[in-house]
Structure formats: C-alpha cells, structure tokens
Design a protein around this nucleic acid. Structure first.
Lengths: 166, 166
DNA sequence: AGCTACTATATCGAATCGATATGATTGAAA
DNA sequence: TTTCAATCATATCGATTCGATATAGTAGCT
C-alpha cells in the first residue's frame, strides 16, 4: 500500500525519499516512517517501477522517477479488488482514482460500498451483544453511523459517475 | 495497543488465545493476526500481567487470567495521553473507558477532541492545496466532515460526563 | 467412513513502526 | 560572528505486526 501511495505521488513529478515521506505525512493517509519509505523505494527500484536519476539534483539528492512499468503497476494496484478493505488503503485509492477508467472507478466504489455495508451489519450485531458500558455501546453506534455516511458518500460518487452513461 | 485490547478483554473473564483473536476480530478494532496475538500473550505473561491456569479447561486449552499487575497496567495504558492519536487505539480505549475514573475519562476525551481538531485544520489546508482531481478533493472534504462529527460526538460525551459535577 | 468446516496453537518471512544515528544546511539569537 | 537549534536528507536498528501457512484435533453431516 505504501508502494501504491509512492507511485501515485510520483505521477505528479520526480521526488526524493525525504520529500515523499513528508508528503505522505501531510496527506494524512496514515503514520508512515522512514523505515517504510526507504525500503519501499528500494523494492520499487528492484521491480523496475522507479528509476534513480544518474544526475542528482542541485542539492545532491537522489531523484526518483516513475517508469512506464511503474505506471502500469500503479493502475493495476488501484484497480485490485482484493485490497479494497483497509481504510488507509482506500484513502490512497481515492486520491489517485482519476488514473482509473470510469468503469474501473465504479467497480472499486461499488466494492467499497459493499464492504462498508457488511461492517455496518457486523456493528449492529455487536451493539446488540454489548453490555460492557455506555462508552463501548456509544463507540459502536457512532462508528456504525459514520460508516453509513461513508456508504452514502461512496454511492453519491457512483451516481455522479454513472449519470450521463447509458 | 494489542496488549491493551487483550488486557481489556480479560477483565470480562478468562480466555484462550484463539478466543481472544476471534473477539478482537468481531469487535472490528483492526485486522489482528495470530502472529500478533500469541507473541503478545507471551510478552504479557513475561511482564506478569497475565497468568496461565495450571489446570487447563475441559477442552485442554490454555486459559489466560488477568493478574492485579495486569489490571494496573491496563488502567495506566487507558489513561496514557501519549497514545491518544491512532484511530484503532482510540476505539480500544473507548471500549474499556468505564475502567477509568471520571476525571481521567474527561482528560482522555478532551485530548482526543484536540487531536481531531488539529487534523481537521490540516485537512482544510490540504484541500486548499489539492488540485489533483475531484476524487482527491472529495475524499479530503468527506474525511474532514467525518472528523468534525467525531469531535461533536466526543464533546457530547464530555458534556454528559461533566454535567452534574461542579 | 469420508469429508468439509471449524477450533486451537504456533511459527515463518516480509513489511512496518518508532527511534535513533549521521551529517549537511539554514536561520536567528547571543 | 559564532554558536546553537531546527530542519533537511538518507539510512539503519530492534521490535512488532502482518498475512500466510503448518499442524492437529473436533464437529457435524452424508
């Protein structure tokens, strides 16, 4: 998932490790550490998804550039249905959703809505069983309500996407 | 954080590893694996927070029991202000918030509200800078709105807690 | 009897975290 | 003008966690 995020950011231009880390933090996806960023860049390089510029920039920093292989990997990861659960991962996906075709976008969004609905149902069962405390119950109820709004948001995006199409 | 969750569940009665894993999954805190649960139980045992019953249960399973040390550790972890960020961690905290005193509860909730407000501001900056796509913008706006409702929820809990107290 | 599903404990390699080391640059106060 | 803290930048360390898998017993069905 960190790979997806890095590849996504590199579609906006070349960057170096520290800068990518800062952007990942700023975007608030999740708390990423350098211990994830640098090994991830090494893996991406080994996989041919990114290249390091021979000529370093004016400050002597390594610049990473997205390759065509890397772009193809990104598109494939953004459309992968097996990883649509995972909250942070979905945020990354949404950020770079414009790189997918309209069809794939709708498929991803629909899958997300489905997963959220399952979780809402699980929460409903959970709240019925919970006798722990008002806090425990309140937390589950609040979370269920929050996920319900997520579903509505995702479905509104699907509507926007499909209106105008046969 | 997995330690906190396990200790919390053990306040409700003795349990074995597999059962704890199942309950953690059911509660929907986050996706926990056996590779976290069993090592965590070993650490808790080494720290004296849990005991393994000498006499296994009717099915021959290891039963873990919370010790007084463990209960004290749990209370301390639930009240620790340095770990109030982290979404999953906060859910665990809310579930077992009844174990804290009224004062500590309010302190934890207030800290959470503060952290969420900071994140909302960061999201506002982020959405102003984002030109990526409608999806990227929509995601940030939706997240900010979601966190705003989280703040309102947390503040309503603080109100309930403080009303009636001088 | 055979089979599928579930219960239960546990470990493996890879990924990730949080902290830290190192050094260079920058900017502002002493 | 030096010095001192903060930030930039790359990188690694040990510990933790993940996802997958191994192993084996039990349940219930057909």
């Amino acid at each position: 998932m960190i790979e997806t995020a890095i590849l996504g950011l590199l579609t906006e231009g070349d960057a170096h490790g520290y800068g990518l880390h800062r952007r990942l933090i700023d975007m608030g996806f999740w708390r990423v550490s350098f211990g994830s960023v640098y090994p991830a860049l090494r893996r991406l390089k080994a996989a041919g998804a990114v290249e390091v510029s021979e000529t370093k920039d004016e400050k002597g920093r390594k610049q990473y550039r997205l390759t065509e292989t890397g772009r193809a990997m990104l598109i494939s990861q953004l459309g992968d249905m097996d990883t649509v659960d995972n909250t942070s991962g979905f945020r990354v996906r949404m950020t770079f959703l414009d790189l997918l075709s309209g069809q794939d976008r709708v498929a991803v969004l629909a899958k997300r809505a489905e997963i959220l609905k399952d979780r809402i149902n699980a929460a409903r069962v959970s709240v019925a069983e919970t006798t722990r405390s008002v806090y425990a119950r309140s937390e589950i109820e609040h979370r269920a309500a929050s996920m319900q709004r997520d579903v509505e948001w995702v479905e509104s995006l699907i509507m926007q996407e499909t209106k105008g199409t046969s």
